[in-house]
C-alpha cells in the first residue's frame, strides 16, 4: 500500500527550524528546559511553545532558542571536563571550622 506518490505535500513541505523551549515556572525561579518544537520564526515558536508546554499555567515566561545555537558539553567527557573542580574542597563552607560562638544568634 505504498502511497508515497499521492502524498505530494509530504516530502516537499519544509521541516521548519527546531527551537528549544525553556519555561520559567514562577516569578523568581530560573528557566528550565521543557522540550523543543518546529516553527517558521521566533514569534510563532513562542506561541506554539505556549500551546504545547504551558496549557496549565506551567510558565510565567518562556524562552525559545534556535537548537543549533546551543553549545553543550559532552556527556562522555564529563569526567575530564569538570575535574578541575574535584580537588578544591576549600570552595565549600564545610571545609572550614569556626569557633562555636559565632553560630549563636542573639
Amino acid at each position: 500500500m505504498s502511497k508515497d506518490e499521492n502524498l505530494k505535500s509530504n516530502n516537499d513541505d519544509t521541516q521548519w527550524p527546531l527551537w528549544e523551549v525553556f519555561t520559567q515556572p514562577r516569578e523568581g525561579k530560573p528557566h528550565e528546559h521543557a522540550g523543543s518544537l518546529h516553527a517558521p520564526d521566533a514569534e510563532m515558536a513562542l506561541e506554539n511553545a505556549r500551546d504545547v508546554y504551558a496549557r496549565r499555567k506551567e510558565a510565567v515566561n518562556i524562552w525559545v532558542v534556535p537548537s543549533e545555537q546551543i553549545v553543550a558539553s559532552k556527556g562522555e567527557d564529563a569526567g575530564p571536563f569538570f575535574d578541575p573542580a574535584d580537588d578544591k574542597p576549600y570552595r565549600h563552607p564545610q571545609f572550614y571550622s569556626v569557633p562555636r560562638a559565632t553560630k549563636r544568634r542573639s
Binding site: D4, D13, H38
Partner: peptide
C-alpha cells in the same frame, strides 16, 4: 527527523 517519522505514519 520529524518529517521522516511523520511520513512513516502517513505512508502506513
Amino acid at each position: 527527523s520529524r518529517q521522516e517519522v511523520i511520513d512513516d505514519l502517513l505512508n502506513g
